[in-house]
Design a protein around this nucleic acid. Sequence first.
RNA 1: GGCGACGUGGCCGAGUGGUUAGGCAGCGGCCUGCAAAGCCGUGUACACGGGUUCGAUUCCCGUCGUCGCCUCCA
Length: 458
Amino acid sequence: MISLHDTVTRTTAPLELRDPGRVSMYVCGPTVYGPAHLGHARMALVFDVLRRYLQWSGLQVTFVSNITDIDDKIIARAAEEGRDAAEVAVDWEAAWYATMQTLGVQRPDSDPHATAYVDAMVELIGDLVEKDSAYVTSDGVYLSVDGVADYGLLAHQSLDDLVAGGGEREIVGAEKRNPADFALWKFAKAGEPSWPSPWGEGRPGWHTECVVMSLDLLGDGFDLHGGGVDLAFPHHENERAQAVACGREFARHWVHNGFVEVGGEKMSKSLGNFTTVDELTAAHDPRALRLLILQAHYRSPVEVTPTSMANAEAALERLDTLARRAEAVGELGPEAACEPDPERLEAFRTRMDDDLDTPGAMAVVFGCVTDANRALDAGDVEAAAPVVAAWRSMLEAVGLEVTAGTDELPADVLEKCAARDRARAERDFGTADALRDELVAQGWVVEDTPDGTTVRRA
RNA sequence: GGCGACGUGGCCGAGUGGUUAGGCAGCGGCCUGCAAAGCCGUGUACACGGGUUCGAUUCCCGUCGUCGCCUCCA
């Protein structure tokens, strides 16, 4: 069984499932008001890998990730553009999924939308008001944090310390009983989208949707709750606070991924130092980003730079090269029926089970590449087969697709290859080299093999 | 101010109380007509100062530096 670091206990412990064999996981998705940046990509990729690996391990995974489609930021954006908040959300949600598809991130099993859960949220808030855990002010309904046992569990700070912190929390005007109290419901100002509630027209606060949706779709005491570390506090803390105040069992394990950094600083929208995913994937192979993320531990920060991307692309090429070689040897293609080498699979599993040690797991993957190449160099297909099969299986587990790159070759290119082979056969190397130069100039990678000149896109 | 993380060879980036990370780049070799790809070989790296230990990059203390959370944020 996999062990994962838990944000609450700060230790790595075996994942104990509510229902053996089945994993229920909830990962906080995006607020849809702008393009996804590399930070979102890392989050999505990390949990996509976790999800795939758990499935690969034979567990039945239910993966829920929400879309926050009502929020102050969306409203602000809509106002800027002079259109409807719902339109803004729909557009950016579509953009989000298009980007995720580019990254090879699988769709969640369900992607609940905040706007579809307003009634359920109103119900939960009503319950909290009734229990006296929440109170109404002139601008909304707030959760009273004082009565919540262990508030600060995820932040690892006492309520007093949190409140005494350097942050300049807005206390005035909100009539809050405790500065740490947070809005469950915000009354609508003129022109803002709103829904009815017993306390007045308004919209839900951010932290409420995830409580309602996760418990609704995954049930009490679901297994895993994840997101970026910046969500640990206050977002997840506040989700938990509501569940606790309602007397419901919330997530059993908390998993948080580290930041993407730029020059040692967190990449974030507020700092303005972000690169959008679409910008990156326009310039680089999207798989290289996945590989780069895999080569760092999910809780460590990672730098995504042109250099680190170029490195990852070169490493990826090494992977594709093996795919190409294996495919060329008929029986080692993706459909090969060979049993994967169990020892290699075990080595991979050991790494992955240890708090998702993807860098270590990738070292095993690259070890397979070297060994398979060596066997293939020696013409020992039989020895290569189980290694390649294990390798393919590992790549599947982390969602990394390799390609043998069987491009359709234009006629003139094929003609030049043939001409080059004729020249080489006649040992007319001047002509052969000239043809190679021409092909390279046209953007092809030219290699000589026992079968003659082969060519592929650079 | 509180809580926490990190500082690894040219670069990215793991890990460990004593025996290989891995990737990229470089160098030498094999292969090749020459290349490319692949293979083989190649780097006395673990911020600094103490301490514990037979032995520390790995544990403890301190110093310096960088960063994160405490406020919307993946």
